[in-house]
């Protein structure tokens, strides 16, 4: 079971924040096919948001083919976003960690590091598989 959170100042609509958190969990392998999402009641009781927001997020995830409701039981994961790339995460993480250490040693603060990362990723040509 995963936990949701809400960042009010992010400028991202609350339902979309929930959608993104599920996608993120699927991508990182924290959620897998067959896993149950928290019930609407559990989510609202935990993070104090409108039940309709949760329903809307779950409907959107259903539309994306990632989850499916099972009447009387709850909402379950039906597909995963994690692929073969998941295996590479650990190695890439280590490399990134080293790079960040180098960047900090060069005097960049976190904001500068993120800005550099963002500009570079925008410039790098997207290769579609």
């Amino acid at each position: 079971m995963i936990d949701f959170h809400l960042e009010p100042r992010s400028g991202v609509a609350p339902y979309m924040q929930l959608v993104q958190q599920v996608q993120q969990a699927l991508r990182l392998g924290m959620l897998d096919v067959g896993d149950q999402l928290p019930t609407v009641k559990q989510v609202v009781a935990k993070i104090a948001i409108n039940p309709n927001t949760v329903l809307k997020a779950y409907r959107e995830l259903e539309r994306q083919g990632l989850v499916a409701p099972q009447p009387g039981r709850g909402t379950f994961v039906t597909a995963t976003l994690a692929d073969a790339s998941l295996d590479a995460h650990a190695e890439l993480g280590t490399a990134l960690h080293q790079w960040i250490t180098t960047a900090r040693a060069a005097g960049l603060d976190d904001a500068a590091i993120k800005a550099l990362f963002d500009t570079t990723i925008r410039k790098a040509p997207q290769v579609t598989p």
């Binding site: 009641k41 609202v44 009781a45 935990k46 104090a48 409108n50 039940p51």
Partner: peptide, 14 residues
Amino acid sequence: RRAFLQNLMEFVAE
């Protein structure tokens, strides 16, 4: 305040 809203949202869901 948060506890109150949590409880209220649970009522609404239920």
